[in-house]
Design a protein around this nucleic acid. Structure first.
Lengths: 220, 220, 220, 220
DNA sequence: CATGAATGAGAATTCATTCAT
DNA sequence: AATGAATGAATTCTCATTCAT
């Protein structure tokens, strides 16, 4: 006979398994058809649960959405952190960050939309659901990673010393998001009309972008 | 009795008048409440037409949306063209373009979302509604304006001569969109946590961005 | 060709016709199965409208309920007023009132439940829907009819002169409601176990009740 | 090892304990939120049983409702009996009954609604659940108490001797229910518009009602 | 015995769209 | 041309109930 501890752990794991299954399907559908156009019915059908079961594991549709956002941000944070810790060379770290973001955008295309669209969370409002707090804090942690990267570049004499750090962090976030998102969504256009590959366009853009804060102009 | 020609012209003008009225209201509502949350009912009520009349002038809701996209792109094109023709100095033209895009994003916030999100149009598919063709062609015309701007910069010896033009056009589109959109949607965050204004952040970002293709590094 | 006036009148009449049809069916179902157990679906099916059409004529289920209450109260008021104006003899008027209430309870059994159950309306709260105001005012008007009846009885020297009028009005409302409702709902019991008819029981009860304020005890 | 008898007795007692716990919670919730708005989930959560366990002790929601009706009727019976046995003076007994009913209505507001609303039980139909039989029989026993009270009043020469006993029992039931229920539900109205207290109104009404069968008219 | 898990059925409501006039 | 009327289909979410363990 199993101990109570194991019992409850197994149960929790099972519940988590179901939550994950639902989230995975939901995310796929959100990406394919958009969040608003994806109904709980769609999720239920695709995930092969009954509609009512969805409500056993999630309070409502909004909770599903928020969980996906948080989850994907966690993953992004882990990846960026891992990649920046491994690489020692600064530009290699930059490429690594860009690569992670790109991979990330391919895996969770929804994320970038939300990253950009999501209305500012009012962190001080006590009515803001705790998930939003978590999302906000995670966002700050990711910012922190970029922040360290910029500071390292300055102290190594690679980046110009006159750049304003918080603005530059945000500037990189914004530009990289724009570049990656557009490359991802206009892939066909790029390949048809620009006579190059998406990958090549991204490489070119990342190099051009970093150029904007390098101490010495580099030929791309 | 009027000639057929006059009849049809008058009719056409009247029809255009109605279409415009509807589009104007629809756009206001789309911006205020979002596209999905705006119902045909809302549009009809606000525009003071009957719901059925909407379907006299537009095939369906989608056509209304597409018309708004096209219309707002036309406006953007006109503005960028006007501003690039007036200004002679290259960096003044850059600032002008950035300014137009920013104003534009504030006036038609919806546009940028769509600009970035809208699925790639398959221009060769005969089922693609003609409005998409128009949207695509207008996009190309706007690209053309940026293209000229880049080429002018190179020939004036202001931009590096080794840059790849089509990629750079796209790169600017993508980066500027990202920056402007994020500045617009995270205004509160910027002002609370970065201790600066949205306007200042934008200025800093635009300057940093152009730096990436300038022949000589400038201190921002 | 009809004038605008006639057109709109006809339309209004048609709309009223539909509203009435729906209300009639709704009332029947409410009576048969209870208000909460009657779904909009049930009403739609029975009334032979589509569910969506119900929402063309009524804002929501609550509006249907409130309309039925108001409508039935209007009818009750009219009936009581008519009967008290026709009859000159006081006790004949009393019988008439009782008879109207009884007929009424048979026709709109739902009404008595609501009359008794309906939570007190906060007349001063501006959020209270206007229908409730109307319901409340109509209730007051009906009270007014009983009030006049009591006062007439006193001034004619038929009722005791020491009775407190507002309390007595309410006392009669309450007792008559209780009697009529119970006679209506326990009809079988009365006829099986009391060896009399519902009608006879009602007559006996009404006579006994009025006895309570008569100046001279009457043998029933 | 315990004998089968003890086992089963202990089991039965335990089962009864659980049933009581559930019923107690259910009643509280029914009163607070209404029967239809109280879900099995609510009951389970509040009673700290699992939803499924509810179905171990009760066939379905309806059985819970019926048990509560029966239970509350039992309580009412006990109270009326106790109060009529203690008091010797007839009018004191009347006041006592009225007081018990009032207290009862305040404690179990639900009861009166059901007392009045509940559809006639077809006692002869074998499909009628046994709990309805019990409810019916208990109703008869309570009637019996009123019956004795009336008969005592007649034999003591306090009530008129020409009254018809079974009708009068029912008449009192109905009137008292109506009065108490209305006083309870229209408390605010009474206090605002009648310039008196609920308690005072009740006292006045009970006195007026009994007047209807008193041999000698009393001034209230 | 007790229950976690699962669900079919159904609730109110909304919406884009059609059609007869 | 313009529209009032009507609706099928869909949406989110709830609930009483069952069943394997």
């Amino acid at each position: 006979m199993k101990s109570g501890f194991n019992m409850s752990r197994r149960k929790k794991e099972l519940a988590d398994f179901h939550r994950e299954s639902i989230l995975k399907i939901a995310e796929t559908l959100f990406e394919k058809n958009g969040v608003e156009s994806t109904s709980m019915n769609d999720i239920a059908r695709e995930a092969e649960y009954s509609k009512a079961t969805l409500y056993v594991y999630f309070k409502n549709k909004e909770e599903i959405i928020n969980c996906i956002i948080l989850q994907s941000m966690k993953l992004l944070y882990d990846r960026i952190q891992a990649s920046t810790q491994t690489e020692k060379d600064l530009l290699a770290r930059y490429n690594s960050i860009c690569h992670e973001l790109t991979t990330y955008c391919d895996t969770y295309p929804l994320y970038f939309q939300i990253l950009i669209q999501e209305i500012n969370v009012d962190v001080n409002n006590p009515d803001t659901p705790p998930v939003f707090q978590e999302i906000f804090e995670l966002g700050e942690k990711i910012n922190g990673l970029i922040d360290i990267f910029i500071k390292d570049g300055i102290s190594q004499g690679i980046f110009r010393s006159d750049i304003r750090i918080p603005e530059t962090v945000f500037f990189f976030w914004a530009s990289l998001s724009g570049i990656i998102l557009m490359a991802s969504q206009k892939k066909n256009y790029i390949e048809q009309f620009m006579n190059t590959t998406k990958q090549d366009f991204l490489k070119y853009s990342f190099d051009t972008l970093i150029n904007s804060i390098l101490k010495e102009n580099k030929n791309v």
